[in-house]
Design a protein around this nucleic acid. Sequence first.
DNA 1: AATAGCGGTTCAAATAATGAACCGACAAGG
DNA 2: CCTTGTCGGTTCATTATTTGAACCGCTATT
Lengths: 252, 252
Amino acid sequence: MGTVEKAVSLLKLFSVPEPEMGLSDLARKASFDKATTRRLLMALTRHGLVEQDADTRRYRLGAGVSRLARIRDAHFPFVKIALPIVRDLAAQTGETVHLSEHSADALLTVHVELSARANRVNVDVGQTLPLHATASGLAFLAFSRSEAVGRYADSVLEAFTAHTVTRRERLMDTIRLAASRGYSESAQGYEEGVHSVAAPILAHDGYAIGTLAVAAPVSRVDGAAASLHGQAVVRAARLISGRLNGEPPARG
Amino acid sequence: MGTVEKAVSLLKLFSVPEPEMGLSDLARKASFDKATTRRLLMALTRHGLVEQDADTRRYRLGAGVSRLARIRDAHFPFVKIALPIVRDLAAQTGETVHLSEHSADALLTVHVELSARANRVNVDVGQTLPLHATASGLAFLAFSRSEAVGRYADSVLEAFTAHTVTRRERLMDTIRLAASRGYSESAQGYEEGVHSVAAPILAHDGYAIGTLAVAAPVSRVDGAAASLHGQAVVRAARLISGRLNGEPPARG
DNA sequence: AATAGCGGTTCAAATAATGAACCGACAAGG
DNA sequence: CCTTGTCGGTTCATTATTTGAACCGCTATT
């Protein structure tokens, strides 16, 4: 593992439930030597990607990461553009809706609107979703370059539940179905009891850059509901794609 | 320079006006070898901190930086808390207002509300402000630990304009004035034609963690206006400090 | 058809990263 | 009050990684 990747791994140890850690803790979690860990942290600190509390000596993510994110968001305001549409879809369906962005061979959840119902699906911002086991992933693959899909289908497909699609041929069939319908469907492929439909958000070139998904408890989803959610998520995803690619918002 | 710092330097080359670059361009700007630059970029890409456009082969900041920023913001919602107060101040003064956070011996602009007027000061999000040459920096130093101020004052102070304070004694005087008034003032110390006042945003321990500033064209600022801006920026900065440290928003 | 730029790759040489052992400080327990 | 364990941090001989000149194939200009 290269030095740079080690440094980035350290950054990735910070999370919403654990946003601050001491040196030894970080070293243990990353399985790096304490001296190494410290040198990496100092390098990151010098550039503001990490900061150290003056009192507790614990480390946390620094203002530099916010700065970088702002630069990116100014150029590619994915969440900002999608937000109103995501909210509309959540209101329409009454179910949990989540928005994901492609990153490093997975989908990164960047926004969630939780259902108001007591029995609902919970998704965390920052969670990464595997491509073969979630509706979002399937929708993404269905609108990806075929070489990339082939490469992914050839890799080892982890089974998260008894329903996870792990055989290459079944996966390719599922992807083809999603491509022809415009949206994907997955029942309990990643978590037991969860049903999801998802549609791709497309770049100007017609390939997916992210996905929009509706997730509901299986108990609440029959064929009719699934179809309704599917059509709604496709409409919403198309709206987002349109605005991302410069199409003006519709009037009224 | 360590490998990690080189990688981070690459990230820092991206900016709001130039959010995408080719390999050779990046290598030239960073003064790294093309092969080195590419290896660093690949390491960053593997973790989603950088992404490469499939068509143009140009590089840009990736979704990973947004993810890290969300983790940090969940724990330390500086901008979110400050935003309404920053907007009020912008409305009150009619001038450009910018919010900065301390990071790696400089101030990082994390939010900007631009004046609606045709003749206005422009500040970019992500811009870093030197501590000795901007109103923000002076306000920050005026409320920093004296050892840190001493160390900074001993370093080489770059002159950005003919008005930049570069002599240690002048700097210390300016800082003392800011400390006693509660806000700092800088006329054309960083950019010609720009007048700014700034006040510190304080942590629970009373030391500055960031600043709030009002920037206006010198032509529009006389003594009375400067004083008004100064008082307004102090009020707004105090409100932000209070809410950051757990004080509830005032009613009405 | 010649030139110059681009993104990307190679491999011997050079430089940087590594980690076991160490320090002083602090806190809990006997 | 002395032991034990853990903390953050440092040192330096050993080791493994980074480095960059030269190269490739490609595309656009001239």
